[in-house]
Amino acid sequence: MNDSVETLWRYYKETEFLLTQSLSSQLSFAIITAHNPRGEVLTPCQNGLLDRQLQHEIYRLGLPYRAMIGSSQDRKHMEKSWVVATDKASAIELGRLFNQNAIYYVEADKLQLVPCLLAKEEAFLGAFSLRVNRVQEFPDIV
């Protein structure tokens, strides 16, 4: 793997999550974004269009979902994402459909980084609840 892919993978491992509502620690769900496919940084307009397409696909599949934001620890990079109640295999396929390098999957509060397009091993990242920050409203993503 080249350095840029290794750097992306390291950033993915450090992600925190902004939510406006708490989630039960008993739930299993995926965290999926459509932003910046294959790690290529797009404009806010392009990412917004992809996000709406992903939301439409989740809705079409009849899956329960909720908005969230995946964020770097310093909040300099944020991506609109979706908590989606689905199994891991279906979540990976949805990530691949939107050209995502990886998704996150949470089972009983255990956070996993799961590759979709990258030839990497799943990474267990500890407790999801320790990476959640509750916010009153989502910040604007630019």
Rank of each mutant, 00 (worst) to 15 (best):
R60A: 15
G126Q: 06
E121D: 08
S4N: 09
E137Q: 13
I58P: 00
R96A: 05
A127I: 09
P139N: 06
V5N: 08
Y59N: 09
L61Y: 03
E93H: 13
D74E: 12
S25G: 08
L63F: 10
Q53M: 14
K76D: 11
K110N: 10
I69C: 12
Q136P: 01
G70E: 06
I31R: 00
T33G: 03
L61I: 04
A30F: 03
T20Q: 14
E121A: 15
L125C: 09
A89L: 13
T86W: 04
Q21G: 02
Q46F: 04
N47R: 05
K120Y: 03
Q46C: 09
I141Y: 03
S72C: 06
K76G: 08
S28V: 06
A102M: 08
P44T: 08
D3R: 05
N99P: 02
Q53L: 15
A34M: 08
E137N: 10
H77F: 08
A119L: 09
E137C: 15
A30G: 07
R60N: 15
R75A: 08
Q136N: 07
Y59H: 09
N133P: 02
L118W: 04
L117E: 10
N133R: 15
K13P: 00
L49G: 01
H35D: 13
Q21R: 14
V83G: 01
G70C: 12
A85V: 12
L111W: 00
S25R: 10
W82E: 02
G95N: 04
Q112E: 09
T15F: 02
Q53E: 13
F29C: 04
K120H: 07
L61D: 11
N2W: 05
K88Q: 12
G62E: 15
L130W: 06
E14S: 14
H35E: 06
R10P: 02
Y105P: 00
A119R: 14
K80T: 12
E6R: 13
S4G: 01
L61N: 10
F17H: 09
T7N: 13
F128C: 07
K120W: 01
V135L: 12
